[in-house]
Design a protein around this nucleic acid. Structure first.
Lengths: 339, 339
DNA sequence: TTGAAAGCGCTAACAA
DNA sequence: TTGTTAGCGCTTTCAA
């Protein structure tokens, strides 16, 4: 910078003003030109470290996540956060702690030592977390809710998602609608919420909830296949004509069970999933109607509040809507059922 | 830090020595203790920005990627890179440019302004890239090869992967083995390489390659289904007993085509995929035998060379092995074929 | 064994 | 309109 100043015949203060754009208005146009030319000639490049030391702002935000590796959704969250950061001229510093408390402490230290301007604490699936102490009070939680409350947080609106899913089915004329739920032992916060949504829609439609139709299994393809199989093997009058599956993987299993019995989706059975899992939901045959998890949007939201672009109510988590993705797995019930 | 020094009755130089561990040996034990206590009492926290300014090392490495969002593999690469960085006390600064040249230039500026110690340029699928100018010469390329050459890079060993896949099939006794390839218009660098592997194994096994068995389609489930269907509808003596699919999505389609014809995997048709796509390959029924893309390992490798922990030959990309993931989609050929 | 002092590259009061 | 100066918090010779 002093090279530039010397070359332009001005002081470094002037160079700073011109090049940073701050107070540049107060520098004469000719001087500005000279400075810029000199900078160009010298090949000047800003040293943000020095600037940060002086200004006490780094324009970096730390993102601590438990596992970026193991879920295909992580990317969308990162992308949302990253996009906002970029739009605002910020950089994101990523740390994956794999849920290890020690690693978390280390990460926190490293990030605060690095003077990041803000922090985001992200979970790669919706759950309630015990926030590590040392996490700054203004850190924002992404895809998780703080056990203790009192922090800005964003999670998917699972209940509304359940409502939307089941409404699709009711609207198509179904009345015997199953919910293929995850087993309780998995402690998924989404599970009871989606179930509430399911019950609500049935109630609205004047359909009595049949406990038989609330099946539970491991939330993977195998579980979905097995649970759907049990339901399909019910006597004709008890059998569901539609299934709302806890996730797309279970839906994948439900497809298998259906095809295995020589039945077809959606002619014999309509199916709605959840997650809109990349490279899966759209590739089933027929393509799966599902509820998308708003990972990208949540990532954006979190970064926006982290950067102070948007207010957040620490009293409770922000609920991000889960859009319906209509594809081809929902149709009217079979004629025998008066659809 | 001066607070700590004052409290301990020493100079900041001493505090620095003790707390940074550098030259700490030359400070008397009592002094060390006093310094540490003082630091504790004051709640001292290192300011890495100031240290970086002084030492000209930030212990941050920049990772520029074209798209973290759109592929489920991205996470594993990031995880690999992140793990190595963590082990070495480094932080990774992530920028997703979405392939936009402008964003790339910006990112490059931001990162070098931030004085990152190293850079990694990552692609989220294996391809040849035109490296943006301004990318430092010692940046390492991850999952892509530089069009111009001359840079450290790591990519999957697709050819060896193809060999491994087809060997599984040959070992199971198959002789009519199809390759469900991606269409040429997709310009996938993996495609000809995997095909080479396929041909090599056939040659080794003394099997003549039948062009009919080299089917091409869009590399998605629909394409796989259609191409597999064509092959399955061939007259009995021309029909393959096994298929090597370009990726797991095509394999998923091949399953569908098989089941649709009332046939079974692996009794009537053995299938090997590629990618070991999370939440898919393992969940097909039966679980898919496939070749894993070594994303995590490539991420590690790239970070290791970026940090100077490992030498790299800039002359050509490092080929990372793709392991075989044996599951249940390969069996002997049907009896009629003398398996 | 410890301290003094300079300086990393920048910005922001304040003066001129 | 521009320059002087101090200083962000740390590390590192060099001297004591």
């Amino acid at each position: 910078m002093s090279d530039v100043a010397a070359r332009a015949g001005v002081s470094t203060a002037t160079v700073s003003m011109v090049l940073s754009g701050r107070d540049a208005a107060r520098v004469s146009p000719q001087t500005q030109r000279r400075v810029r030319e000199a900078a160009e000639e010298v090949g000047y490049e800003l040293n943000s470290v020095a600037r940060s030391l002086r200004t006490q702002r780094t324009r970096m935000v730390g993102l601590i996540s438990d596992t970026i590796a193991s879920t295909p959704f992580a990317g969308r969250m990162l992308a949302g956060a990253n996009d906002v950061a970029r739009e605002q001229g910020n950089l994101v510093v990523l740390v994956d702690t794999e849920g290890d408390a020690d690693a978390e402490r280390q990460a926190l230290n490293a990030l605060s030592g690095q003077q990041v301007d803000a922090m985001i604490y992200a979970s790669m699936w919706h759950r309630v977390v015990e926030v590590p102490d040392g996490l700054p009070g203004d850190a924002v939680l992404l895809d998780c809710a703080p056990a203790a409350g009192g922090r800005a947080a964003v999670v998917p609106d699972e209940r509304a998602g359940g409502v939307a899913a089941v409404r699709e089915l009711v609207a198509a004329g179904h009345r015997r609608i199953a919910f293929l739920d995850a087993e309780e032992r998995f402690q998924l916060v989404a599970s009871p919420l989606r179930y509430e949504g399911y019950l609500q829609v049935l109630a609205e439609a004047g359909i009595e909830a049949d406990p038989v139709l609330h099946a539970r299994a491991e939330p993977v393809a195998g579980g979905g296949r097995e649970a759907a199989g049990r339901l399909l093997d019910l006597p004709a009058e008890e059998r569901p004509t539609a299934m709302f599956c806890f996730n797309d993987r279970m839906a994948m299993g439900a497809y298998a069970a259906t095809h295995h019995r020589g039945l077809s989706v959606p002619d014999d059975l309509s199916i709605v999933g959840y997650d809109d899992q990349q490279l899966v939901a759209a590739e089933l045959d027929p393509p799966l109607t599902t509820i998308a998890l708003p990972h990208y949007e949540m990532g954006r939201w979190a970064m926006e509040v982290a950067l102070g672009l948007r207010p957040a109510d620490p009293a409770e988590p922000h609920l991000m809507p889960c859009p319906v993705i209509r594809r081809a797995s929902v149709g009217p019930p079979p004629a025998a059922f008066g659809g």
